[in-house]
């Protein structure tokens, strides 16, 4: 990066360290923190949508929806998330390419799964084999986002379902007495009131989501864990900056990063909780009212 770094073997002490920490590889490492943040920023709303769907389905009066909603929630709770992470992206990838192959391939007589191989014609590959590496990385990342959203969507569904049940029955009955339809009750009374009950659970879920991000590494994404392992490993003389095993220090950096994220979230969530509780018929809302009076 710097002119003075062109010959690392001549460097010592602080200048060596400075050059070492600004190699292209380290810049990729710093950038991968951004990947974690992007994942969080995309997954949180998507998971919330999944959760909303799941919760509404579980409350539905139609039994097939109810079954799907409840089954979805129970399924994810019973199985370790990591199994889903190892399974969902591959299943999604092959499923999508299979569907695309039915649509675009000229010859679909050959079996798609044969001799351990998954084979579709070149045109059905997602993304196409000729597309730049960036597309492949974005696609892999998108699959990871879906896997995360499916799993954490189920947890969100659980929280939202509980929150919807917690809205006082009398409120809904009053709305019904005014002649609102079920959809109107949901939209005008249930959902606005539900948030006060859902926020503590969703805050907790956000914390869990933060702590699940290192699992990206298991999905083959070059995230912070990947780079920490790669950079920290013993570097022999073949590299420009040889050093012994430094993985412990790199992982300490990750630890500090996550602790900071947690602390920051705690502060922000505490503020949100106060805001949401304001004016609500809950213990927290009551405490706020008394404090104000």
């Amino acid at each position: 990066m710097f002119e003075s770094c062109s010959d690392p073997s001549a460097l010592h002490g602080l200048s060596w360290m400075l050059c070492y920490l600004t190699t292209g590889k380290h810049l990729l490492f710093y950038g991968s923190f951004g990947i974690v943040l992007i994942l969080l920023a995309i997954t949180a709303p998507v998971a919330l949508i999944f959760g909303f769907g799941g919760a509404l389905a579980a409350r539905s009066a139609l039994w097939p929806f109810k079954l799907i909603g409840r089954g979805y929630i129970a399924m994810v709770r019973g199985v370790p998330d990591i199994i889903f992470f190892l399974f969902v992206p591959i299943a999604m990838d092959q499923g999508l390419e299979f569907l695309k192959s039915r649509a675009v391939c000229e010859d679909t007589s050959a079996p798609v799964w044969s001799n351990n191989e998954f084979h579709v014609c070149a045109a059905a590959k997602i993304p196409l084999g000729s597309s730049p590496q960036l597309y492949h990385e974005i696609y892999g990342f998108a699959l990871a986002v879906i896997a995360f959203s499916v799993v954490y969507g189920a947890f969100a569904a659980n929280v939202l379902y509980g929150a919807m049940q917690a809205v006082p029955r009398a409120q809904l009955e009053t709305a019904e007495a005014y002649g609102m339809t079920r959809a109107q009750v949901n939209r005008r009374v249930l959902i606005p009131q539900m948030w006060a009950y859902a926020i503590p659970g969703l805050s907790n879920l956000w914390m869990i989501l933060i702590k699940a991000t290192p699992l990206l590494f298991l999905l083959g994404i070059e995230d912070i864990v990947y780079w920490a392992r790669e950079l920290g490993a013993t570097k022999s003389q073949i590299y420009a900056f040889p050093h012994p095993d430094w993985r412990l220090y790199y992982f300490l950096v990750l630890l500090v990063f996550y602790l900071l994220m947690t602390k920051l979230s705690e502060i922000v969530l505490a503020k949100i909780n106060r805001r949401i509780a304001f004016g609500q018929a809950t213990a927290a809302g009551e405490a706020l009212r008394k404090a104000g009076a």
Partner: peptide, 12 residues
Amino acid sequence: FRGSPLFIQFFL
């Protein structure tokens, strides 16, 4: 222990 991922704790 609550603020950091178990995955990182294992590694460390």
